[in-house]
C-alpha cells in the first residue's frame, strides 16, 4: 500500500533527472497540481462549486511577488504570507458565497473573482497592471540554494511544497472533519440533522482551499519571478475545474493525475497553436461532462476492477 503511494512521488522525483530540459514545465505541473488539490478540497469533497478559485491563486501570487519585489525574498515566509492573505480573503468572502445559496453562490464566486481581477488591473501602481509585476527577486532557499536558470531549485522546491501540502490534505480528508464535508456534499439536508454545523464546516473548507490556492499562486510568482493578471483570470479557474474532472473529482490523486494530463496536453497542443488547444480543451470538457464524473482515475479503477474479476 505504501509502495503504491511511493510510485507517483518517486516518478515525480525521477523527472528531475529524466527531463533536465523540461524542469520549468515540471514546476508548472507541480503548481497546477497544488491548485487542483485546492479545488478538490472545496469542490470535490465539500461539494461547493466555485468559478472564482483563481482569485485566491492570484492573491497568493501577488502577495509573494510583491513581498519579494519590495525586498523580502525569503521563499518560505513568502509562501506563508501568500497563504495568509488568500485565507483572509476566503474568510471574508465565504459568508457571502454561502449566504447566497447554491446557484446565486456560484455566481458570487464568479463575480468576486472578476472584481479582484479588475482591481488588480486598475491598481497598476502596485501590481504593474496588464504588464505584470516586474522585478521579483528571490533569496536562496535556506540561504543556500539559489533559484537557477534551468529551474532545478524551482522544481525541487515546488515538488517539496506540493508533497507536504498533499500529505496534509490526505490527513484532512481522512479525518472526521473531512468526512463531515463528504456528508455535506452527499446530502445537505441530512448533514445538519446529524449535528453537523454546515456553514461553519463549509467556511473552514473554503478558507483552507483558499490558502492552498494562495500557496500555489505564491509558488508560481516565486519560481517564475513574475506575477500577472493571468493568475487571477477566469480561464485559470476553469482550467482548474477541468483538471479536477479530468483526473477524478473527490480523490486527491485524481487531482494530481488531472493536473499532469492537463498541463502536458496544454504544452503539447499549444505548441501547434493556442486555438487548436482551446478547441480540443472544449471537446474534452463537453465529453467529460456528458460522460459523467469519474475522470481518468475512475477509468483506471474500473479497468482494475474488471481485471480482478477475471
Amino acid at each position: 500500500m505504501i509502495l503504491l503511494h511511493a510510485i507517483p512521488w518517486a516518478g515525480a522525483l525521477a523527472g528531475y533527472w529524466l527531463f533536465p530540459e523540461q524542469l520549468p514545465l515540471l514546476s508548472a505541473i507541480a503548481i497546477a497540481a497544488l491548485f487542483a488539490v485546492s479545488l478538490d478540497l472545496i469542490v470535490g469533497y465539500a461539494g461547493l462549486v466555485t468559478l472564482g478559485q483563481a482569485a485566491f491563486f492570484g492573491a497568493g501570487a501577488y502577495t509573494a511577488g510583491i513581498l519579494a519585489q519590495q525586498g523580502w525574498g525569503e521563499p518560505f515566509s513568502g509562501l506563508l504570507a501568500a497563504a495568509a492573505v488568500a485565507a483572509l480573503l476566503g474568510l471574508i468572502s465565504a459568508p457571502l458565497v454561502l449566504r447566497a445559496g447554491e446557484l446565486a453562490g456560484l455566481m458570487v464566486t464568479l463575480g468576486l473573482g472578476l472584481m479582484l481581477y479588475e482591481a488588480a488591473n486598475k491598481a497598476a501602481a502596485i501590481t504593474g497592471g496588464a504588464d505584470g509585476l516586474q522585478g521579483v527577486e528571490m533569496w536562496p532557499i535556506f540561504g543556500l540554494y539559489r533559484f537557477d536558470l534551468w529551474g532545478r531549485t524551482a522544481y525541487l522546491y515546488s515538488l517539496a511544497v506540493l508533497f507536504v501540502l498533499f500529505m496534509l490534505a490526505r490527513l484532512l480528508v481522512a479525518s472526521p472533519f473531512g468526512w463531515s464535508l463528504r456528508a455535506i456534499r452527499g446530502n445537505a439536508r441530512r448533514a445538519p440533522a446529524l449535528g453537523v454545523p454546515v456553514k461553519a464546516r463549509l467556511t473552514a473548507a473554503y478558507v483552507i482551499a483558499a490558502a492552498y490556492a494562495g500557496v500555489a499562486g505564491g509558488l508560481l510568482a516565486q519560481t517564475t519571478s513574475f506575477a500577472s493578471l493571468d493568475a487571477l483570470s477566469f480561464q485559470r479557474s476553469a482550467d482548474g475545474l477541468l483538471m479536477l474532472v479530468l483526473g477524478g473529482l473527490g480523490s486527491l490523486y485524481g487531482a494530481l493525475l488531472g493536473a499532469v494530463a492537463f498541463t502536458v496536453a496544454h504544452h503539447a497542443l499549444s505548441e501547434a497553436s493556442p486555438v487548436f488547444w482551446q478547441f480540443w480543451l472544449g471537446i474534452a470538457l463537453v465529453a467529460l461532462a456528458l460522460a459523467g464524473q469519474g475522470g481518468l482515475l475512475g477509468l483506471a479503477r474500473a479497468a482494475i476492477a474488471r481485471l480482478r474479476r477475471r
Binding site: L171, F177, W179, R182, A183, G186, N187, G195
Partner: peptide
C-alpha cells in the same frame, strides 16, 4: 435522506464522531 456514496459504516461512524464532538478534528 442518506449519503448515496458512503457506506453504512462510514455514515454511522461519521455521525458518531459528530455526536461525540469530534467533528472538527482534522
Amino acid at each position: 435522506q442518506l449519503f448515496a456514496e458512503l457506506t453504512a459504516m462510514q455514515a454511522t461512524t461519521m455521525a458518531l464522531a459528530e455526536r461525540a464532538g469530534l467533528g472538527a478534528i482534522w
